[in-house]
Each structure stands twice: as structure tokens, then as C-alpha cells.
Design a binder for these strands. Structure first.
Lengths: 246, 246
DNA sequence: CCGATCCATCCTGTATACAGAAGCATGGCT
DNA sequence: AGCCATGCTTCTGTATACAGGATGGATCGG
């Protein structure tokens, strides 16, 4: 039993380490400021220190962990302001993606796909009985992915992807929480209206409008943030929000 | 001679590997698409494979290298559009930093320091005889660093720092090239005027103006890009521009 | 009873060993 | 002569060994 011939096949050890540690951190199994011992982690995840080490380094790059001056890693403590900034930053970057899409010629094929997603979201939101949140999350995620691709800038797309590694900056972060909040329907109707307006602005080559709309769309998450942080039970439904202290 | 008791003291092996490989790549010692062998690198830099490996992983995160599907790393090939996007992206992010600085209360102490830098830059640019480019680069870099800090958002500051890891997105990237171009003085006068306007906008809490100014300021590099790419000898003065193909 | 110092333990950074996979060239076959 | 199979070489991914330094606790002194 030296190397990768373990029972679980498929992913590399490093990937397993990455996913495993992410899970531990975002689930709140290790609190902010707490030290992550490589040895303990390697035992806990059944890996050697090498892939653990690689994963820790990457998570530091992602902004989830911090390196102590004396060596070793700790979980980064996020403030409420950090979360707000991350969300606003996503708005700024998605705004730029929308503007790029409007200014350059957005790929017609992708725009067509965009309309398909819009229609699907319409149908989900309009559903009179209980909404299919799982489907909403899928299509909403796809909408945003497509928007990023529509920018036509690989550099920008990478940067957005990076910011969304912070789980509370993810477009779907608050949707599950919303599902347990009173004014769900209204909130998602607004979001969907913004989705449509955004695509419309892109098609009309109205870059400034597209940018402003994308920013405002992200701010929807910001208003949800306040509500969620008031309610301990809701906090748990938003991945990574357990790390917020203060 | 097992470990870190090498003659050169100070930095860790990993840092040496990082700097060394960055140097090799940005100097054009390895061309775009070329494969980087860990063994060869470890020989070349006099390190073991472990720190080399860590450095390669980080450089991939920075967007300088790419991982091959079969494993191993290659130098990423940048197009001219990639460079333009990176510069524009810096403009967007610094624009956000400027807006934040204007919207939130910018730290008065730092604002004071900002004025000191502005004055220094004024003196350098106004110098009738040959300009001190080295000093200009220092103060210009300091201006931008302070701007990023003035935003008051650590999340944003980190993101900006990341984008500037692409050397051609660095605020000073084209200054050395400019020093060999005809209309130097004029160009730097414009830049300095934008610096002043930017600080003025922040102090007056004019967020939108501050944002627009920072974006336009970054675009100054964009106009230089075209000029530089025409001239083979100038290309060499801008770090990392050797990676641009097409 | 509190604080500082010293010692033992643990932990990280680095080097190296090892195995499976990929790339490559040679040689055989059609 | 061209193409495919095959064996070798070289590589990366992973595990482990080792050493210097940090951390924490117990003991001694005030």
C-alpha cells in the first residue's frame, strides 16, 4: 500500500485533500484562527502529508487560510465587512463581464443559450405550488457561468472564479437560506427581472446599463446577508458563513 | 548538507524557487507552451524537487503556468488581448478601490501621505534636465499601493495584488519602456494630472469620478502597449511581455 | 502565589525514495 | 515504405525520513 492504489479510485490524492480540508473549514469543524496541523489532517483524511501540504498552500491562495509567521496555517477569520466586500467585488467583476459582453460582440450561440436559461428560470419562479429550489440553483449557476463566458475574456473569467472560491460570494450562496425566508417569491422575482434586463442590455450593446445591473444584482445577496446573520439557524444554511466572527 | 544550512541565508527554499522560476519565465528563458521539468529546474536552481513543486503550483495559481492534462506544467501563452484585458481589469479593480476610498472615510493619515507622494512626483516630473526614472517608479508604485490600502478593503487589496502578479499589469510596467519613447514627458504629465485628480475626487467623496479616473489612468498603459508591441527592442524592457505571442 | 526559565515534545520545511504513467524511439509486420 | 506494437527512458505524484525551530508545560526562584 504505497501509493494511489487505494480503494477509492478516480481523483488524485491532492484533490481529495483539497476537498476534504475545504469541507472541514467551511462546515465550521475548525474555527477561525484555529491552527491546522498537517499531521492531524493527514491522519484524519487518510493521506500522507504531501498532498495535504499542497492543498493547504492552495487554500491559502484562495484566501481561506493564512500562514503564520512561524509557519503553519490557520483558518482565516472573516468579518461581516469582509463578506460584504466579497459580494460587492463579485458584483464589480460580473459587472465588467456584462460590460465586456455588451461592448464586444457577444457570442450569438451563447446568447441563445442564455435565453433558454431565462425561460427555464421563469418557469421555475412562476410555479404556483412549492418552488423547485434545486432546479433554481442549477439554472441560476448556469446563468452566471454563461455570463462570465460571455465576457469573452479568459483573464476576467479566471478572476471571477477565484473570488467565488469564497463560498459566501457564490451567486447561489443565499438561495438555500432564502428558501426558508418569508418573502422568498418576491426576492426571486426581482432577481429574475434583473437577469432579463441584464441580457437585454447586453443584446442592445448598452454596456453601462449592463454593468450597473450586474452590480445591483449582486447587491441582492448583500441585503440577504443582513437578514441571515440575524438568525443563527439560517447562518448554517449558507456555506462558509460559519467563519464570520463579529 | 541536508537542508537549509546553505550559504545563502535568509529566504526559504520555496521562495527562492518561486523567484527563480518567475525570473526564468518572465525573462523569456522558456517560451510559451514549453514544458517545465521539475528535475531540470531543481538542478538549475540548486534545490530539491519539493520547493520547486510548491513554486510551480503557486505560479499556476497566479496564471503564469498551466497544468497539462497528463501532468506537469507549461508556460502559459498570452495573447495581446490577454494583456489588454489584464490592464483593463487592473483599472476596474483600482477604480473600485478609489470608489471605496471615496465612499467610506479614507484614513486621513494615509491621505496625508498621499499628498506627500503627489508632491514628490510633481518634483520628479517637473525636473527640467533628465528625469529620475528610478525615483518615479518608486513613488508611482507607492502611490498605487497606498491607493489600494485606502480602499479599506483587505479583500479588494488582495485581489488587486493578485492581478498585478501578471507583470505587464503592474502600474510601472511600461514606465521603463516610456523612458525610451519620444513623448515621455507629456505622457507622465498626463499620468500625474490623473493622480492629482484621483486624490481630489477621493477627498471630495466623489466616488463615481474617482472610479472613472482610476480606470482611465490604467488605460494609459493600454495606449502604451500598442506602441511598445511595434518595437522589438522596447518589448524587452517590459517584464513578461516576451510571453505575448500573436 | 506568580513569573520566568528550561526541557521535552511536536511541528513544519526540505530532501529523497519509490511506483505507476507518459512519452519516445526502435524494430517488426503488413 | 508506412504503420503499429513494444520496450525503454523519463517524468510526475505520493510517501517517508530527517533536522532545525517553535510551542507548551513543568519546575524553580522570588
Amino acid at each position: 500500500m504505497t501509493a494511489p492504489t487505494r480503494g477509492d479510485r478516480g481523483q488524485s490524492q491532492t484533490l481529495k485533500a483539497l476537498l476534504g480540508i475545504r469541507e472541514l473549514v467551511f462546515a465550521g469543524a475548525v474555527g477561525p484562527g484555529e491552527r491546522l496541523s498537517e499531521v492531524i489532517l493527514s491522519h484524519r483524511l487518510g493521506l500522507s502529508r504531501t498532498p495535504i501540504r499542497a492543498a493547504l498552500a492552495q487554500l491559502e491562495q484562495e484566501g481561506v487560510l493564512e500562514t503564520m509567521p512561524s509557519g503553519g496555517h490557520t483558518v482565516r477569520a472573516f468579518t461581516q465587512a469582509d463578506v460584504a466586500d466579497a459580494i460587492e467585488l463579485r458584483g464589480v467583476l460580473e459587472g465588467t463581464a456584462a460590460r465586456f459582453a455588451a461592448e464586444r460582440d457577444a457570442d450569438p450561440v451563447r446568447l441563445q443559450a442564455m435565453h433558454g436559461i431565462l425561460d427555464a428560470l421563469d418557469r421555475i419562479v412562476a410555479e404556483p405550488r412549492k418552488m423547485d429550489f434545486s432546479a433554481y440553483i442549477d439554472f441560476n449557476g448556469e446563468f452566471h457561468n454563461l455570463l462570465h463566458a460571455l465576457s469573452g475574456s479568459e483573464t476576467l473569467r479566471r478572476e471571477i472564479e477565484r473570488v467565488m472560491k469564497l463560498p459566501f460570494a457564490w451567486p447561489n450562496a443565499f438561495v438555500t437560506a432564502q428558501s426558508q425566508m418569508p418573502e422568498v417569491r418576491a426576492s426571486l422575482v426581482v432577481a429574475q427581472s434583473q437577469h432579463r434586463a441584464l441580457v437585454d442590455a447586453i443584446e442592445r450593446r448598452e454596456g453601462t446599463r449592463a454593468e450597473a445591473l450586474a452590480r445591483e444584482h449582486a447587491r441582492l445577496a448583500l441585503t440577504n446577508l443582513d437578514v441571515v446573520l440575524e438568525d443563527r439557524t439560517l447562518v448554517r444554511t449558507v456555506p462558509g458563513l460559519a467563519l464570520v466572527s463579529g
